[in-house]
Simulated assay, not measured.
Amino acid sequence: MIRDQESGFPQIVSLGLDGLLVRFADRFDDAANRAALAFRDVAGALDSVQEASTSLCAVYLRFDPHAHRHSALEDRLRALLAERNWYSAPLPADHRIWRIPTVYGGAYGPQLDATADMAGTDTASAIEELSTARLRVMTIGFAPGFPYLGQLSERWNLPRHDDLKTTVPPGALGLAIRQFVLFPAESPTGWRHIATTAFRGFRPGHDNPFPLQPGDEITFTAAEARDFSRLVDAPDGGAICEPAR
């Protein structure tokens, strides 16, 4: 149940009248993220739970307080936590592998050169490293369909910039603090705009408006700028999605 007796995790805390939060860490941690994803699937299936969702390292559970008491649900959750070492859980069995064509640098990634320099590498080497990294959708948040993706190697532990006048287009790929974020819509941002995709993480009116799910894995494969208009017209911006094996 508890990976580190001194850490005090997992924790169960109340959120308002109808919510409980199960926390596996107080900052991002790979094992805690996998624990949250696995625990969400099991706890969310309890008959007393109406909604289950994850953040980077925690699970939010909503229930009907008229039908169930906080203490009763807490007891059930503690029993679940004791059943296994959640920190060693694999990724969800139904997670997918995405390969999303991405144009790096130039007009499609105006901050790539400066970002590579901050990371102590050159632009070509940065593209090679970043375009072959396989990253996990750790959580969806901030805006509809907005994924936090990680983790990159330590060299990419760069701060976000403080110029919020920067606006990025839909499909922009941002980088900071060892993570990518993929913008579903035009937005001001402090993330470093290094590339752009034709992929849309939020598709209003579509049968599946949120194609990415926590636990999915993504590689942002390098594409040529001359191909971008073709990718815009392609389904899912040219992305390929396959079941994980």
Rank of each mutant, 00 (worst) to 15 (best):
M1S: 08
Q11E: 04
I12Y: 00
V13K: 09
G16R: 01
L21F: 15
F24P: 02
R27W: 14
A35G: 05
A36G: 01
A38V: 10
R40C: 12
S48F: 09
Q50P: 00
C57H: 10
P65Q: 07
P65Y: 12
S71V: 12
D75L: 14
D75T: 11
R78I: 02
L80Q: 08
R84Y: 10
L91M: 10
D94S: 13
A107N: 06
P110W: 02
D113Q: 11
A116W: 13
T123C: 09
A124C: 09
E128K: 15
E129D: 05
T139E: 04
G141H: 02
Y148M: 05
G150Y: 08
N157I: 08
V168I: 08
V168M: 06
G171N: 00
A172Q: 07
L173I: 09
I177K: 14
S187W: 01
G190V: 00
G190D: 00
R192K: 05
I194N: 00
T196A: 03
T197K: 03
P204N: 07
P211C: 00
P214V: 01
T219V: 14
T219D: 04
A225K: 08
R230Y: 14
A234T: 09
A234W: 02
D236G: 07
I240L: 14
R245I: 15
R245E: 13
